[in-house]
Design a protein around this nucleic acid. Structure first.
Lengths: 337, 337
DNA sequence: CTGAAAGCGCTAACAG
DNA sequence: CTGTTAGCGCTTTCAG
């Protein structure tokens, strides 16, 4: 590896001087600067950011920790985050945790000791103690998919409201009963979505029927058979709310395989508005999350936090930012009456 | 940050001793070891891997550089890579380049100077000069989606053969002509796939008709209108080969919107076998890539290369590993006669 | 304006 | 078995 010293030798100056022209902050005579520039050019020298970080105690790397790139929610979020990071001269790396706490811890450990400047957590894990501790230790971080109390920074949507909107649309366009595939309730956001569903039902003068709540909807195969069983058992169900688009795809497959038509026999609605939703048949009605913006804002937020910390020596008071959602009506639900 | 020195002080030993118990290689008396352990525990000390890397000139981080997590090909590949990395005690980070050479370069630069132990490139960029240079500079790396000469390690599929298989299946189940949406031909793998298509046609005594080759199929909206135009213009087309599953989804949408039935009026086949393929309606016939294995093998390969380099001081001779593909017949194509 | 020197946190001879 | 010392590549006073 070619280092500062090599450049210094070639330019006939000291290492400090090279460092100075690199930093561009202190004064260096134009002539010296030029000679150093040439040497850098000639040797194709690249500063070792590792050493820089070790010295400065900070870096230009941000980490986006997500459950899995398999979850189609994240491409857009990541894109927003990357764009914002790049704009600020930061590099963003992605880490998949598969909602495994051990893995999440391991990534945090590794990245932290690599002096990652900040973290964005897209994971939904219910236990957040380690994250809270991380924050207490002064590490800049922002949450995007979980929320446990208001003592941490976050950029989120109102999951309850989003689910309420989805359910209300279903209620307004159905005659029969409305079922729900809520997903793993131990993940806070799905519990919130179930709440929103119940609230909409209540408002319409109905009560949530436990039989219509498909737990275990995290496993796709399981969800598939559950939907089939449900629909065969309860003939008066004519709408299903899948608490995320990917579950909706599975639900649609099950409905279809039963010989039922979407939306005529059974309407299906999702939540997220992932890219695929518009390409499947029929195109999926869903409640859109502003995924790109969530990613973008989350990064802007950590960057603000980092800056604040540099100036004040401590993290700023936590703030939660709630972005809005929007019902996107496509063809998997009936027309509003 | 709490460091080696703090632990040493608390345990009443020198920093080297602490380092030694951490490394676990040299001899340390049981009693001292115990005291150090306690101090580490008490202070919740974590070694600074940055400093370790700076000192040792290596790290336990691997980078998987991909075009975009939006490309549904990568979740499985990444999973395979992560599993293999974890098993070996390495941490894997992901980087999205969006097939932008500048971005790719930037990631390489950043990660390299963070002493990333090895790279896996899932990007398909046609220009590989910078990658070649990287290899020449002694950086362990493996390619998975592009191939430019046999002077670099790679784990790939035979794209030509895969496309040949897809086309042959279409030919065996169609009466009319077979079109293709090849994607960006400047990306080598798509050029190969087009070749395979032509080879199958030739074998069947036909010649590739330029009119049936949908260039510009990289932009989804463009592809959508191109398919519609093509189908309206050429009434005798009854099968389309999309050179990857995601394009197939768009093709299916276009076919459907034209009021045509799949596969009765137009059969559609993809290539990759991404997870969604089985959930859409109708389930997509496709040629499967062993994505998980590609990821797994690629990591095992860099790890081998890293080991070889440690022992011999230089990279081993490059080797290309070709994994097999398999035709998965589902419902988007007709039954073989 | 520029060089010398110290040190970020850790490892690895080299003594003892 | 354990401490001392030097140094990885860079930045930053402090002199000059």
């Amino acid at each position: 590896m070619i280092g500062l010293k090599d450049v210094a030798d070639r330019a006939g100056v000291s290492a400090s001087t090279v460092s100075r022209v690199l930093a561009g902050k202190s004064y260096v005579s134009d002539e010296t600067r030029e000679r150093v520039r040439e040497a850098i050019e000639y040797l194709n020298y690249r500063p070792n950011t590792l050493a820089q970080s070790l010295k400065s105690g900070s870096s230009n790397t941000l980490a986006l920790v997500i459950p899995s790139i398999q979850n189609q929610m994240f491409p857009h979020l990541a894109r927003g985050a990357e764009d914002a990071a790049r704009k600020a001269g930061y590099t963003l790396v992605l880490c998949n945790t598969y909602e495994d706490k051990e893995l999440e811890l391991r990534y945090i450990d590794t990245l932290r000791s690599h002096l990652t400047a900040g973290f964005i957590f897209g994971t939904m894990l219910s236990s957040s103690e380690h994250i809270r501790r991380l924050r207490q230790e002064g590490v800049p971080l922002v949450l995007t998919s979980r929320l446990h109390g208001d003592d941490m920074d976050a950029v989120v949507i109102d999951n309850r409201l989003a689910a309420y909107r989805a359910t209300r649309h279903l209620l307004a366009t159905s005659r029969g009963r409305v079922a729900i595939a809520p997903g793993n309730l131990s993940l806070g956001i799905y519990a919130d979505r179930l709440e929103g569903y119940k609230a909409a039902l209540l408002e319409a003068g109905m009560e949530a029927d436990t039989d219509l709540i498909l737990l275990n909807s995290d496993n796709k195969e399981q969800l598939y058979t559950d939907v089939r069983n449900l629909l065969e058992r309860e003939k008066d169900i004519d709408a299903i709310f899948a608490t995320n688009d990917q579950k909706a795809f599975v639900v649609m497959r099950a409905v279809h395989d039963l010989g039922l038509r979407i939306p005529r026999d059974v309407a299906v609605i999702g939540l997220d508005n992932v890219e695929m939703s518009q390409w499947i048949e029929p195109p999926l009605t869903t409640v859109a999350q502003p995924l790109y913006d969530i990613g973008r804002r989350a990064v802007e937020k950590v960057l603000d936090i980092i800056k604040y910390k540099e100036e004040h020596g401590r993290l700023p008071a936590p703030q939660i930012e709630v972005l809005d959602t929007e019902l996107i009506i496509r063809k998997s639900t009936r027309e509003e009456r």
